[in-house]
Design a protein around this nucleic acid. Structure first.
Lengths: 191, 191
DNA sequence: ATATATATTGAACACGTGTACAATAAAAAT
DNA sequence: ATTTTTATTGTACACGTGTTCAATATATAT
């Protein structure tokens, strides 16, 4: 009753059709009508399961976010919050983004709604929270919120820059940059 | 010949109508047809000047970005790149965002396209570039790109967190958080 | 003031959107 | 195997989109 084969078939058909269309044209130009034509599925049926094309894409994204979580959470010895740890964590994210480059090119596209960015932000933020939490004794937890969002978005800033460089920078080079940035990014360190 | 009154009147009418509609409903739900009805302007005329509703909103944003630039670039004694400077710079941005809170609530809305975020990113990034450039002797300029984007997006991370807290955190408190973050955010500093 | 240039309008078109409904097909339940 | 449930389909509707075109209105230029 919960896994009606008709529904599964419909959703799979739409997902498959979207992937095919994405090879030919950008996400923002794909209409519901076009997607349904490609999938040979009635447009009314689409609206029984989704509200917009984005929701179909979002299902792919959830798989990718799951991969990001797993690649990040794979067991390794977590010592304290220090630079080597942050590097090790981030290099995993770089690998993941490179692997799903085609999707991240869509996510960072300027025509795409912020929701995807926030999905990525929240995912990485939860890792960052794990890494940071408990390592500082702060009075108010609200301060921690700002710190974590600061750090999370800083990393996303690197991904944005990577995106703008067409993902041509190698992961090794990115990691070198990260080390440099983290070493420079000490405000009390006079130059 | 360059300032045809008819064009000015049309554009003003559309801008005014958009502001009125924004008081009642979110940007993403405002259609071209609706905007033109509100402005009593033919829909065909709209398409002579704009491609979508976003382009009308973008004209407001350009005014706001101009204010951001001016509030940031107002003359003050720039010493070196150190924490006090970064604070002074950022508190100006906080003030500016608070003043135009209504617009930033739209910009950070999850349904809105990334273009507005990037517009903000690029604006702040140019300030950050000024602040940072020349204070570090780096071999390749590409490294600087990543550093600047890292720092810029980190600040935007604070704004995102502010947005999520409904802009209820006071500017004074935000600045306190920033000081704490900058003091903590030294990777070589063992806790 | 008149002529010229052009912005605006209204109408029409093909296509997309979101919804509703009865008819049909295909699944699950017995 | 038959019944029951429900997902899918086809059709229709009002509305939005983006474009074209001749008619009109309103600027600018002389």
């Amino acid at each position: 009753m919960k896994h009606d084969l008709r529904i599964v078939k419909t959703k799979d058909g739409l997902r498959h059709a979207l992937l095919d269309l994405l090879k030919k044209k950008p996400l923002e130009t794909i209409t519901v009508a076009e997607l349904c034509r490609e999938a040979t599925i009635n447009r009314g049926t689409f609206y029984l399961h989704y509200k917009e094309v984005h929701e179909v894409f979002k299902e792919y994204l959830e798989v990718i976010v799951e991969d990001l979580k797993q690649s990040y959470e794979e067991p390794y010895f977590k010592t304290n919050y220090h630079i080597q740890n942050l590097e090790a964590d981030m290099i995993k994210i770089f690998h993941h983004v490179k692997e799903y480059k085609d999707f991240y090119q869509i996510i960072f596209d300027e025509r795409i709604p912020m929701m995807y960015y926030y999905l990525l932000f929240d995912t990485i933020r939860s890792f960052m929270k794990e890494s940071i939490e408990g390592h500082f004794e702060l009075d108010q937890s609200i301060q921690l919120d700002y710190l974590i969002s600061y750090q999370t978005n800083a990393i996303l800033g690197i991904l944005i820059e990577w995106h703008r460089h067409g993902y041509e920078t190698s992961i090794h080079e990115l990691n070198q940059h990260l080390i440099t940035i983290l070493s420079i990014n000490s405000p009390f360190r006079k130059m």
